[in-house]
Amino acid sequence: MATAVATHAHPPTSTGLDHRKIAIWAFIGSECMLFASLISTYLIYKGRSVVGPFPHEACDPPKCATHLHAILNIPVTSVSTFVLLMSSLAMVLALAAVENRGKPGYEGIMGSSKLWLLVTAILGTTFLGFQAYEFTSFVHEGLTIRTNLFGSSFFTLTGFHGAHVTAGVLWLVTLLAIDMKRGLGPKDAILVDISALYWHFVDVVWIAIFTLVYLIH
């Protein structure tokens, strides 16, 4: 039976590439438009809030009831940006470990996909922790999603990004669970590959947000 089946197995793909990798790239292309819409709106509304707090400028009476300082915390966000960048490094190492399982140079720590998947997930969670800290401190300082245009567009943009990171962490944890259960080898590289593409894309979106939202003023 096995041979009969094999003759009629799926024909080769036209490009020799895996379906899922094409789909994830198409998805990433689509996400470009999603984040472009969010970032455009943030930039369009920049400087148009009628009440504070503002991202880069202090707000004093009479415009604001009390003195409000510039709200963005660049040092903290720089650290969380670094954390996310490092998570991308851990992610490529996880992929390399899975792809090169058993090859020379990938013994020990470099070949431990479990370790690198875990590190990526932890760094992603750390980034989310920084974001949670940032959001709560903003709320304490009087900026909620309802306060002004800056609040609405800022929380929506960074919140959407955070939601993407959260989905990515869930994905990584799922992969980690599979790795623990049966081990991921070169045959499964595609599974790690597509999650890595998603993860790096979420990272590059943050690269853009960090510059456009936090640094430029």
């Binding site: 438009m33 709106t41 999603i145 245009l149 609405s152 929506t156």
Partner: peptide, 25 residues
């Protein structure tokens, strides 16, 4: 579809946030 729908998605998200959560878009 892949390029146009994300934009309406975001416009609708803004509208949902405005209507449900009181944002200011």
């Amino acid at each position: 579809l892949v390029l146009a729908f994300p934009v309406i998605t975001i416009a609708l998200v803004f509208l949902q946030f405005d209507r449900f959560f009181g944002t200011n878009f």
